[in-house]
Simulated assay, not measured.
Amino acid sequence: MSKAEQRAQMSNGAGFIAALDQSGGSTPKALALYGVEASDYSSDAEMFGEIQKMRARIILADGFTKDKVIGAILFERTLAEEIQGRKVADYLWSVKGIVPFLKIDKGLEEQVDGVQMMKPIPGLAETLANADGVFGTKERSVIHEANADGIAAVVAQQFDVAREVIGAGMVPIIEPEVNIHSGAKAEAEDILRVEILKNLDQLGEGQDVMLKLTIPNAPNLYDALADHPRVIRVVALSGGYSTEQACDLLGQNGKMIASFSRALTEGLSKQQSDGDFNAALGGNIDKIFRASV
């Protein structure tokens, strides 16, 4: 694996990052949307087996290539899974030419000061040391209100984790999501932008990060973040918008590319034939790619 090649792809590649990191909390909903009901599995192992089949079907699809998908975020359990006899991260890079990332957060705390901080991440150093073939990480917090203290705390925690990831030789994707249903979304985004810039300025040479942010109400609000010397790329989450909405809004932000999860899998079903599945996924990939470039 060439870290330099992967970094170049993430810095300059035309395309988007696929978010395939559904975890224990989000997997049942993702499976239900895919046509797999809770009655179709009887244990966590069977549930994770079903979501792995869905991920593998997406990764193996003809349209899922580095020409449009430059990176993919995986759930930790996925690292032990295989596709065609290769570990998933290795398959993504060695066969597909797609840069693998790992979701490392363990979920969210209860809301305090209008935000949800990340829960502690036990064993993080060991996880990073054993993440063979993975270029970087992704860690998510959520902002619900324009509370300056809460937003400052979220960003500080994100950068603390980011420094540990950087110390392990990986690139962190910092994700302080702003709830798209917040009545103070625009105000929260203004505060968030200032806090992120403040923390970026405290990073040293070589301490580079990526940012994953909700598509802002004000187009191009995050251009200054994208231009910061410590930022490799700014990517957007779909946040509950439909594929069409997310792509329309992203298209108004020239320095952001997509990192969509639900919007990527919209309209996909386990019951579809391979031809119908590939056509539906290919349509989503094309829309997201166009919005990203």
Rank of each mutant, 00 (worst) to 15 (best):
A45Q: 12
D227C: 08
D286M: 14
R77E: 13
P176R: 00
F135I: 03
I288K: 08
L102H: 12
I257T: 15
I288R: 09
P176T: 07
D276H: 04
Q158T: 08
A184H: 12
N217K: 14
Q116V: 04
A258M: 14
L128V: 01
G267Y: 09
S292L: 05
G114W: 01
A4D: 10
S26P: 03
E81R: 12
L128N: 04
G204Q: 04
I288P: 08
G107R: 01
S94H: 12
G275L: 10
V231R: 00
E177H: 06
R163E: 08
V69K: 02
I232K: 00
V115M: 06
K87S: 13
R7I: 10
I83Y: 03
L60G: 10
I191M: 09
Q245P: 01
I143K: 13
Q116C: 13
G183N: 10
I196E: 07
L102T: 11
A186N: 09
E164H: 09
I191D: 00
Q52M: 07
W93K: 09
M10F: 13
V231H: 08
Q22V: 04
V95D: 15
E175G: 04
V234F: 03
E244V: 09
I51T: 05
A146V: 03
E187C: 13
G13F: 01
Q84V: 05
R86H: 15
P229G: 03
I98W: 01
S273G: 14
S43K: 00
N179G: 04
M117A: 15
A224Q: 13
A129Y: 01
Q202E: 07
L268I: 03
S94K: 15
N253I: 05
I232Q: 05
E205S: 15
I73K: 08
I191P: 02
K3H: 13
T243A: 11
D67R: 10
S39W: 06
P28Q: 01
D21T: 00
Q207E: 15
R230I: 06
V165P: 02
K68A: 10
G114E: 07
K119G: 07
E266D: 06
Q9N: 09
I83W: 02
L74Y: 03
